[in-house]
Design a protein around this nucleic acid. Structure first.
Lengths: 127, 127
DNA sequence: AGCATAGTGTCTTAATGTGTCACAAAGTGT
DNA sequence: ACACTTTGTGACACATTAAGACACTATGCT
């Protein structure tokens, strides 16, 4: 089976949870790990399955911990990330990320093979 | 045996499923894999058997998941693709792809050796 | 402790997706 | 031309999934 593919439009509930499409859930189950790391990228979110996140983390670790710009990049990335478990097939997006990504009700999930993106419906349609 | 060849006209049912011609099915069976990845190309669809798709995926994986432009390229490609299993000899085309490709009832399947294309009947006839 | 807020599990309904069957059409061999 | 086989169509019943509602739990605050 392949990675995350396709574009899905889902509705977030009042508590900030969204139903992950069954195709995406199937991939998560195949990884035997319901944990995702959700990070902020510009004005949308990226969801990494745990394992993929680790790959990324290694890439970022190759940046210098002493260079000021590198540290700034790392700081932006790590400080805005959060770990989210998939519970009862639903993903709770933390409030601060919902605000950054402008998520209200209509949300678009976009498969990107190893990861998937979470967009506010209106921003996605404009881009 | 050769790859996908010829042009077939088939009818989609109300749920968006189409019967794959038996010649095409035979090729899929020879690959021991009922999985297809369907991607959007302009105003029609391309169906890749799993193995063929992986060739594409490897090319895209060399792109950086953090670079903005690379992500944009990946997004165009992945967001419009979907994995479809051949079930009971039938292929369900996801709604969003049916809309993009303008598929209603009359659909034309066109063999292209390693892959095959899926066209709306009227667009095919005009082109 | 009591309250407010944030997070979680579960249920119902509606929509979507799936399997199966019977019949019709097309193709094949004699 | 005929019977036989294979293939495609459409119908139907059934299964799965997503949306939304609601009640319950956990947490932090005063």
């Amino acid at each position: 089976m392949n990675g995350f593919l396709g574009t899905y439009s889902v509705n977030m509930d009042e508590k900030g949870r969204l139903n992950v499409p069954s195709k995406f859930k199937a991939i998560m189950e195949r990884l035997y790990d319901p944990n995702l790391v959700v990070a902020v990228m510009d004005n949308f979110l990226i969801a990494f399955p745990q394992k993929e996140w680790q790959v990324n983390e290694e890439k970022l670790n190759s940046l210098s911990g002493l260079d000021r710009e590198d540290r700034q990049k790392m700081r932006e990335f790590y400080s805005q990330a959060s770990e989210c478990e998939l519970k009862s097939g639903k993903l709770l997006v933390p409030q601060f990320q919902r605000e950054i990504a402008g998520l209200s009700k209509e949300v678009v999930l976009v498969g990107m093979s190893k990861t998937f993106e979470i967009w506010a419906g209106d921003r996605w349609n404009k881009s």
